[in-house]
Design a binder for these strands. Sequence first.
DNA 1: TGAAATTGTGACAATAAAGTTACAACCCCC
DNA 2: GGGGGTTGTAACTTTATTGTCACAATTTCA
Lengths: 234, 234
Amino acid sequence: MDEATVLIVDDEGAIRDMLRMALEIADFRCIEAENIHDAFTLVVDERPDLVLLDWMLPGGSGLEMLRRIKRNEATRDLPVIMLTAKTAEDNVIQGLDVGADDYITKPFAPRELIARVRALLRRSGIGQPNERMQVSELVLDGESKRVLIGDNSVEMGPTEFRLLQFFMSHPERAYTRSQLLDQVWGANVYVEERTVDVHIRRLRKSLQSPHGDYSNLIQTVRGTGYRFSARGLG
Amino acid sequence: MDEATVLIVDDEGAIRDMLRMALEIADFRCIEAENIHDAFTLVVDERPDLVLLDWMLPGGSGLEMLRRIKRNEATRDLPVIMLTAKTAEDNVIQGLDVGADDYITKPFAPRELIARVRALLRRSGIGQPNERMQVSELVLDGESKRVLIGDNSVEMGPTEFRLLQFFMSHPERAYTRSQLLDQVWGANVYVEERTVDVHIRRLRKSLQSPHGDYSNLIQTVRGTGYRFSARGLG
DNA sequence: TGAAATTGTGACAATAAAGTTACAACCCCC
DNA sequence: GGGGGTTGTAACTTTATTGTCACAATTTCA
């Protein structure tokens, strides 16, 4: 299902093993490198979908590797998650500055790692291309970033758009506010969970137009969160 | 509380960690013990759905533990997977003889472990995490957090949902109110036992719809508690 | 049969969760 | 630097859920 390839860059064999194990259970393919040189070769040769990059590496720091990836036109869009040892705030800021897409501090729960990898891949559009999705007369076009009801354009903010896009590509499934924040906002942002409620409200409002009311496609699941379901029609 | 619980019995912390990691990524709940005594206490108190049992243990071998489980009426049906160090044919035969339901030899691929755990749980009639479960026309979908009778959605509160989910994953077995509180409400919650009765009532009420009456799938076991049984049909 | 134990049931207040609104901060573009 | 749109949050309102009780109904067993 997933089958995305993840490049693990870490000099400690034990950590690589652990990462590999966690990722393989979650159905990712893994390739490994223990230094920057090998890592860069693999990035070019194997075209991984995501890189897990340790901060501390022999022969050049992880930061250096990150710079190389983000400086190179061909690899700029490759998502990178930094692994930082302690809660080294400075590192994190520096990393995000250079363009890391997410970071995770060791030690971390494997499930959190998996969640972030999945979220980042999704956010990067891997496996979920900008397709056109449709439920009845409601159309979301990922290319033009527009939503239509019938032939009439529907106005909404970027966040509402991403929220709707996520929902439409994952229908019939209940998500917690926390999951939605991870998937739609991104794993490393801190916003209140109740903020989701407000955006849900805005989205629902947008889905009510003179040409059709699709607001109840988005259903609240009390005690859990929200769900997008085509059953909401009729 | 929708996941199945797995008890890990192994004296090596590193192995326990690895097992826990693998299982948690696959959405199982884990509890651990490093010796037979603790293990047996946990079997009684926490009622795991499956046991991963190392062959070599201090204070009595894994085989001894296995015997105790299979000799005891109350735990006889608890599925057990033995972990054997080498490819010791004798051990395996001996283990299966005493009643182990499956075995796996170290070292093993995490995915194989998960596969066997899933297979065994399925064979034992225990529901998988977020699985879709069905009895006749009654459908509970853990992903969408919805209950359907036929094609019609059934309304119920979150607690009733979890209760039904637990029952459907553990059918044909009577639970005391106390056990239900542990499993459905959570281990460290204090509520009156009679509260269970009220929620049972609410659940039964929800299972009566114009499109089908499934209320007597939930049976009262006088002097004990309640049981979910597909025999309640017809 | 009748008392005791156990379970069913409806009502209720307290609480928790979600809906809604307003607002200040922000961002970008002109 | 100003204006329009967007965003996150707090505060307030509304609604649903929860636990408990009191009492009714049922079962058990002497």
